[in-house]
């Protein structure tokens, strides 16, 4: 029971990070039907930007509690802005010209972008793990039984809170504002949206920017949680988040969050109860099983072919 609750807390934290990245995949797939394989590397870049900001601010302001908080806030905001610019540029140079080309063209371009970003960071930042000083190590003990303390750390609270708040804002934008309506319209029929006066190219660019901003939140949280980042960190979390998006039903926002949570929980529970070496095998096996029985994912809409 205690182990279960503790792993639940850990799993939800991890799931929140996956969910935030998965939204970027699912939104872009929804609007242009393309898997943006560079999204994982955009996430990695955001973690690096956050790291640089964090180090810069703490170098100036010291490592007191207030300074760390300020540094995290600055890191989050700067990382969101810089990462959005990266994503916007990627869309502009690597995808926009290929829209309307054959389906595989933007996909290959995305894989190329992914390799480019990864290698760029490897050259620019080095191939070693980049750590930040340990921060926010305090935990709150929830209860204790037989000497096992179930605790939630401040980091975990921060991650879960920030994720929940940003998801709320994001959901509101998509459901209730003209921008979100335009995105949903482009998702269904781009040509028709254009004929109603919607600037489709701009709407797609904004979608990339929104996905990147959320990936930047995930990147900052990832850095806070693990304390290290390396150039190849875009790959595995990226693939997991993509899996989460597919598991939840690609194109569906709540699906992406649900998928992220499930992947996070499966991973942590598998590590706790079975074998830590096989945690990825477990997560991807569950994906395969779900897709066999529900090809559209958990919350995706089945594609109805009109006759």
């Amino acid at each position: 029971m205690e182990v279960f609750v503790q792993q639940l807390i850990n799993g939800v934290t991890l799931g929140a990070v996956y969910g935030l990245i998965a939204i970027g995949y699912t939104m872009v797939f929804g609007i242009i039907g393309m898997v943006n394989f560079a999204h994982g590397d955009v996430f990695m870049i955001s973690a690096f930007v956050a790291l640089i900001c964090f180090m810069a601010v703490t170098a100036l302001a010291g490592m007191t509690g207030g300074a760390v908080f300020l540094a995290l806030l600055v890191a989050l905001i700067v990382s969101m802005i810089v990462t959005s610019l990266f994503s916007w540029t990627i869309e502009r140079v690597a995808y926009r010209k290929l829209r309307g080309s054959f389906r595989l063209a933007p996909l290959i371009s995305a894989i190329g972008m992914s390799i480019l970003l990864m290698n760029f960071v490897q050259v620019a930042q080095g191939a070693r793990n980049k750590p930040i000083p340990p921060i926010m190590r305090d935990t709150i003990s929830l209860f204790e039984k037989d000497g096992f303390v179930v605790a939630i750390s401040y980091k975990q609270i921060l991650i879960i809170l920030v994720t929940a708040i940003l998801l709320g804002i994001f959901w509101y934008v998509v459901q209730k504002t003209p921008l979100g309506r335009a995105q949903r319209a482009c998702e269904q029929d781009q040509k028709m949206a254009a004929l109603l006066g919607i600037n489709v190219d701009r709407t797609i660019a904004v979608t990339f920017i929104m996905g990147a901003a959320l990936a930047a939140v995930a990147g900052t949280m990832f850095l806070t949680y693990y304390g290290v980042v390396v150039f190849s960190d875009g790959f595995v979390p990226g693939v997991k988040a993509f899996t989460a998006a597919v598991l939840g039903g690609i194109g569906s926002l709540p699906g992406a969050v649900l998928g992220g949570m499930l992947i996070g929980l499966i991973e942590t529970f598998w590590s706790a109860y079975f074998s830590i070496d096989y945690k990825d095998v477990a997560a991807f096996s569950i994906l395969a099983i779900v897709l066999i029985f529900m090809p559209q994912g958990l919350l995706g809409k089945p594609e109805v072919e009109k006759v």
Binding site: L179, R181, A193, L196, I198
Partner: peptide, 9 residues
Amino acid sequence: MVAQHNPLM
């Protein structure tokens, strides 16, 4: 409402 996107935006 989508049809009135531009003024709303």
